[in-house]
């Protein structure tokens, strides 16, 4: 082949591949525009007032759910409110966008993505009952879990931190705890003293995720080291965590404080979907597998003392499902196109 012929072939290759590239980007951008149009087959969404304050009556009939709306349309990713009695009914949308969200006693935590200049950035925003920003904190990585203590004072979140750009697959997690009364932020639970089997433990590869609060001083979380995960009980003031049990991830404490829902790696599951949802009774440390046989990769939320809600992949990102917490029953879809729910009321 002469050099001229080679150049012609190269030119044609560049034109072809360039055409494919431009075409695909245009297709993706038009598809993006489509997402901004309100989706017709989902529940109606209308802008309105969303509040994190409960009625105080404690009556289930006045309870609401606030979650991230994942329906395509202008309100995608906004926090929306629905009546707990009609979870798939009309959604009232706020103008606050979050990737992850949780709320308790009038305090909300919203983990947001910020359009960055050269890369995505994230921040954690503490919201008051009217969804107004109280303070915000920059995040080191991609948000995954968020929780608020039952009193509304303490806030916790977990992010995925990726290492340097040359080793794109090296990940770790970082869990932070914030006191919203003093605004002191404990950047990383890795600064806590770890007590394993009664002895102080140090490890280079310690990671924490999935904090759930018992009260303003005590919490449960997952610790990972040497390829194993542990349930730990943490003390915010003493800055210690104590391991309790192996193979527990993303614990979630029941409202009455007696049980933990968690995801457990089960050997019979495939490597792609390794978890099953379990409930651990803290009084006798007995585990109960739940009636959900799909892999759950979420930190479940207790709707009440007997029902759990969690997210599973769906057509519009994710759907919310419920299951009885005692191992009976089978999963029911609560609502479509929703993520990160919190019970208000």
């Amino acid at each position: 082949m002469t050099d001229r012929a080679r150049l012609v072939v190269l030119f044609l290759t560049v034109v072809l591949l360039g055409g494919v590239s431009v075409g695909w980007v245009r297709y993706a951008s038009e598809r993006g525009a489509l997402r901004d149009r309100q989706q017709q087959d989902g529940p109606p969404v209308a802008a309105g007032r969303v509040t994190l304050a409960g009625t105080g009556a404690g009556s289930p009939r006045q309870q609401r759910l606030v979650f991230r709306n994942m329906l395509w349309g202008p309100q995608r990713d906004e926090l929306v409110s629905v009546a707990a009695s009609a979870p798939s009914g009309p959604r009232t949308a706020s103008d606050v966008r979050c990737l992850r969200f949780y709320a308790a006693a009038g305090t909300g935590i919203c983990l947001q993505r910020l359009p960055g200049t050269l890369e995505e950035r994230y921040r954690a925003v503490v919201l008051d009952a009217d969804l107004r920003e109280q303070r915000h904190f920059p995040l080191d990585g991609i948000p995954t879990r968020a929780r608020v203590s039952p009193s509304g004072r303490m806030v916790a979140w977990t992010v995925f931190v990726s290492g340097d750009s040359y080793a794109g697959t090296q990940f770790s997690t970082r869990a932070s705890i914030l006191d919203t009364r003093t605004w002191t932020l404990q950047q990383s639970l890795e600064d806590y003293q770890v007590i394993m089997d009664g002895k102080a433990y140090r490890g280079a590869d310690v990671n924490f995720w999935g904090v759930t609060f018992a009260d303003d001083d005590h919490f449960y979380a997952t610790l990972a080291t040497r390829g194993k995960t542990y349930l730990v009980r943490g003390d915010v003031r003493a800055r210690t965590v104590t391991t309790l049990r192996e193979n527990v991830e993303c614990p979630s404490l029941s409202p009455d404080g007696t049980r933990l829902a968690f995801k457990k790696r089960v050997p019979e599951a495939s490597a792609d979907a390794p978890w099953r949802e379990y409930v651990l009774d803290l009084r006798d440390m007995r585990e109960t597998p739940l009636g959900e046989h799909r892999s759950v990769d979420d930190q479940a939320v207790w709707l009440d003392n007997s029902t759990l809600v969690y997210a599973l992949a769906g057509d519009y990102g994710s759907d919310l499902w419920t299951i009885p917490a005692d191992g009976t029953g089978s999963p029911t879809r609560l609502t479509t196109a929703a993520l990160a729910p919190a019970v208000i009321g």
Partner: peptide
């Protein structure tokens, strides 16, 4: 240019 355009990015 493309919101959530991971597919576009991988193809480019």
């Amino acid at each position: 240019a493309a919101v959530d355009g991971f597919d576009a990015l991988f193809m480019v």
